[in-house]
Design a protein around this nucleic acid. Structure first.
Lengths: 348, 348
DNA sequence: CTGAAAGCGCTTACAG
DNA sequence: CTGAAAGCGCTTACAG
């Protein structure tokens, strides 16, 4: 029962806090003088400054940055729209963006699209309505024309992990094609000829690029790709399991699998653990504990932190007035050899 | 070279966007009428509304929520200070907080303390300066008196995962004591008598509680606790490895280990994988892939999403005027049996 | 149904 | 060195 505070519903809450006006009155100075002291501007005598500081302490004043922002025109905040704040893959990206924002004195709004294009738009536009200085988006949708007016109005925007749809904009992407090609070539180098690819729907840019990398590696080695070796579609465990089982059985089973992302890899690992015949495996995306399994899981690791850092740095370059031609930056992947990708082919 | 936008450095950026005033001028109506249409308030004829909507579309107007906020007194935003945005453990907590915030129409500021009390304070106070309606803090420091003026001024504050230091405030905590006790009792039930505990510095609340749970389970079973079975200190891999090696060798080695958090568990797992003699293991905190190892890792799992959801719900209850007595809410843990905790004692 | 005035808490531009 | 006035883009309270 804090009657001093009173009911909070629908009530303004600033009223309970001292403002610069209150500080000025108490110190017996003008508003502008308080502003000078608070912002460390020159031109205040030591004695005046002391009176102002005393008043600030006595009243417990803290500058309202929301008001400051309205006047100054810049919000010193950026928004990051990612797919799912709970997804461990994006956590280092998120942190890296935060660090760069921090270096530039900006705060970070976070929001999840939940892989829903409408929610992506809703979250991104809510950030824009707050007039964030910049926006970093991991696209869920394929049409980002809704952001064109915002970008034109000066909200710097960078896409990460997947490119923007139907607009020309900055993007920072992993080398999905090269990474997948390297992973599949690694399996080929270890003697595999029949290699399955299980990945997400090819409508998703990253999935399509990784599939392209798979095909390139096979072609480079002069190997054919049978339709039965491709399992493309939603990464729900049931679908992935069915695809893997189909590839691993029959008269001419695959001897190795390349899995297109970490969700697929986990499902396939569970299946392989119960499978009578071993199969080699290389997965796209690294996994915690991947080194503790036996064999360890060989993966094509993305550098999520670098994706985030690069995107945020590009964003602040834009804010500092970098030229306007949209840039696409590619971040390399890294093959991490741990055992599962070096298993020899086992047939019959 | 977008000359229409011009240089961005130090320039206000709102100037490039239409305001309600612009819309009013174009539609030939008053400012308030535009406000009514934008906010869906009644009392505007269909014809007037149409004119206003046309002007909005023509100018590409989007309401500036930062200005709105200044006038309304509530920012419809909350701040979450966690230890590390990159830590997968906090990712589901973060997402859960976002969902609750979203349900209440609030946006989410995110920041990491990096386990540095000063940075925690800096980030939390930056959020306060923006006048967030509420604050959720995963404490890095042990003194939160710096938040007292903010809380008194009406910023609802809830601590999660660890309690506030030196102030009385809402807190949502896992049942660290009960969870650890259950995990250790599980090892005892499987025949272990000499059980090691490796955890973080006991100055950390969660570490102390888990240690207390360990002691309680041992005491309840009438088992002594040798000093050599306790490895308390920083969770750097070197220190943890040394502690585990010490406990697992010698004339009277432990037959089981209880690890106080997931970082410790991973280090101990790496060591056990190379160890000649198997030891049972129960870890505090769940791990991705824990079920795929052989044996699977038995853990005491925290419900991070529930921690976040509970904290955020408590926060919004406060904002809606719930009574002011600080509340402490405990979230239960769950023992997940997978194999490593059911290994029998192996001696000699 | 509609709008002019005042004000949210600051900063900017200017005058003393 | 200091401060009164105007204004950032909205909403509130009030009058027509």
């Amino acid at each position: 029962m804090n009657t001093a505070r009173g009911p909070l519903v629908g009530q303004p809450r600033y009223g309970t806090r001292p403002t610069m006006k209150d500080v000025a009155a108490r110190a017996g100075v003008g508003l502008k003088t308080v502003s000078r002291v608070v912002n460390g501007e020159p031109g205040v005598t030591a004695e005046t400054e002391r009176r102002v500081r005393d008043a600030i302490t006595a009243l417990g004043f803290r500058r309202n940055d929301s008001a400051r922002i309205l006047r100054k025109g810049r919000t010193a905040s950026i928004g990051l729209v990612l797919e799912d704040l709970a997804d461990p893959f994006y956590a280092p990206l998120n942190r890296a963006v935060e660090e760069v924002a921090r270096d530039h004195g900006a705060l970070l709004f976070n929001g999840s699209s939940a892989e829903d294009p409408e929610r992506e738009q809703e979250v991104a536009l809510a950030f824009c309505a707050r007039r964030v200085d910049g926006l970093i988006v991991i696209p869920a949708g394929h049409d980002h024309r809704y952001l064109e007016p915002e970008i034109a109005a000066g909200i710097a925007t960078v896409f990460v992990d997947r490119p923007a749809g139907l607009i020309s904009a900055d993007a920072v992407l992993s080398d999905n094609f090269g990474g997948a090609r390297e992973g599949v070539a690694h399996l080929i180098a270890h003697g595999h000829r029949r290699i399955g690819f299980i990945g997400d729907r090819p409508g998703i840019h990253t999935a399509a690029e990784r599939l392209r990398g798979y095909r390139a590696a096979m072609a480079q080695a002069g190997l054919p790709v049978a339709d039965e070796w491709l399992g493309l579609g939603p990464t729900a465990p049931d679908r992935v399991r069915a695809a893997a089982e189909r590839m691993l059985t029959g008269p001419e089973p695959v001897t190795a699998l390349f899995t297109g992302n970490n969700r697929v890899t986990v499902t396939v690992l569970e299946l392989l653990a119960r499978s009578p015949r071993p199969a080699a495996l290389v997965g796209f995306d690294d996994l915690e504990l991947a080194g503790l399994l036996s064999p360890g899981i060989t993966v094509v690791a993305q550098d999520a932190a670098r994706l985030g850092r690069t995107a945020a740095e590009l964003l602040f370059q834009r804010l500092e007035g970098a030229e306007d031609t949209p840039r696409h930056v590619e971040v390399p992947t890294r093959l991490v050899v741990r055992g599962s990708g070096e298993l020899p082919p086992v047939t019959g």
